[in-house]
Amino acid sequence: MRNAILSLRRAPFALFCLALFLLIVVAALLAPWIAPQDPYDNAVVDFFDSNLPPGSPAGMGGLTYWLGTDALGRDLWSAILYGLRITLTVAATASVLALVIGVLAGLVSAYAGGWVDAVIMRLVDILLGFPTILVALTIMALAGAGTGNLILALVVAQWPYYARTARSAALVEIGQDYIEAARCLELPHWRIILHHLLPNSISPIMVVLTLQLAHAVAIEASLSFLGLGTSIERPSLGLLIANGSREILSGHTWALIYPGLALAMLIFTVNVFGDRIRRALNPQEA
């Protein structure tokens, strides 16, 4: 892991992507302070300013819509910053939850072996057999729209990837004598799993985390685009894109292009960075 991070110094583009990603995250976190308008506050949003092109001044004065406004009169730049916040919160929460569940399942599976391993891994195989978006769509269709359900859907769709990776990494470690020694010392099973297996299996899991984070952002956007994600009052990036796409034939292209660009940048930077770590950790490719 340390070597992988060191090797990033020789990959300026991956470093640039990491910086850009961190910039996006910081911008999303600071949205309430740097956004010119609170897009959730109906007292501030002026419906008469709807669908204004980029650079238009606000009807009531006071600010300029540098990226234009959407169909509800919201400042698009502010809506993108707030949308990023929602998208990133959902994706990060879901990824971390999926990681915890998936890694635990994978480690237990590898450690216990036998029928426990068989049951967990067949479940994983079944889930991996369906496209991720289909699994997420099914959950959303059953549970209904909303941020909580969105996270649930992403966790269900993504934990199998962590479980598979954690299991294969742990199987390599279980063959080592230090696990045998820990068993010989009669340490409790949970202790062997958490203190011996987990720290030594974590590197490949971190790679899966970066790649799955990008994937989670994309799925969240897809679900919101299909109307199964966040609510219209508090749109995520995906919903902004969906709304923008309805305006495209009216010539209001900015409502689609700018949220789309933000999403593309987010996914692209995470992917480039994650792929670089993956290659750094794989000696055959580095």
């Binding site: 004598d177 230090y178 010989c184 011996h196 720290p199």
Partner: peptide
């Protein structure tokens, strides 16, 4: 208790 043959594999590298 047991002491193992390969001292490179018998210690947890993270501890």
């Amino acid at each position: 208790q047991m002491v193992f043959q390969n001292p490179y594999a018998s210690l947890n590298p993270a501890m």
